[in-house]
Amino acid sequence: MTSTDMPLAMAGPEAGRRISTRIWQTAFASVEFRIGLAVFVLLLLAALLYPELSGIDPTKMNIRAKLTPPLFMGEGWDWAHPLGTDQLGRDMLSRALVGLRYSLLIGVSTTVLMLLAGAMIGLFAGYFGGRTDTVLMRLTDAQLSVPMIILAITILGVSRPTIPSIILVLGLAGWPVYARVMRSTVMAERKKEYVRGAMVLGATDLRIMFTLLLPLVLPPMAFVAVLDIARMMIFESVLGFLGLGVQPPTPTFGNVIADGRKYLMNAWWIATMPGVFLVLTLTSINLMGAALERARNAIYGGA
């Protein structure tokens, strides 16, 4: 613990960058990271290219081809629709892949927002301490004690859910954990010599916070945030499922599955197939995230 902390603390941001590289390398050496990365890249490419290349519009209806089952499953399957079609004859594969785009977009931007908001609040609370700390941390506790999903559906249920508002709501509901971690690391860091040295040299608080502390403590948090991308993607699909996500006709995992639930008895693939995509994507992200987290813990000693 102390042996890894000391040189890091004295060398400042420069060492932080080298440690990030080391974490990447350790993670990349593990099997699960590579599996995750391969699956993820494949899915990402499919999501980016397939709907355009195949020229299949995910919202185009074709009543004659409605309820076509997936390949080799049941009667009347068709090569043109590998995952079958829904009750309006829309192609499930391209719907699932377009859903994946929205899911990733919302997942990534939400996590970034949440990381930034949490880091800022934790940084201020941890650096200034005293009354600022008490106020900010009580706010954090309060927010942690209301289930995030209640907060999210309350806001989105009464206002119109659009992509920016979904990102904002999820991001603002998820910051408390980051704020806590950030605060405790900043509190430990700010007592160290290099911070005191900078103070003696006359650096302003903001300068110390943003040029010395932030580059040092943000990367280790950012690695763990990869896991939160997956968590946020699930949240987004849950919201969609409840009818509070991106609104139809735009296909997202949540609203496609909610829609398909009505046809579960005679067309099971509508509700289940998009879920398979979602699970594959999430598993690949979670494998990468877990490998990164382990690599980070191995290098930081669990800090």
Binding site: E32, L227, A230, R231, I234, S237, V238, F241, F253, G254, I257, R261, L264, M265, W268, A271, T272, G275, L278, V279, L282, T283, I285, N286, L287, A290
Partner: peptide, 26 residues
């Protein structure tokens, strides 16, 4: 343990609910 936990966190509860209801009940 790592693989099972990664797989389990990746199962969205509403989807798993539907799939299990389809398999076990229907």
């Amino acid at each position: 343990a790592l693989y099972t936990s990664s797989l389990f966190v990746s199962l969205p509860n509403f989807w798993l609910g539907i799939v299990l209801a389809l398999l076990l009940s229907v």
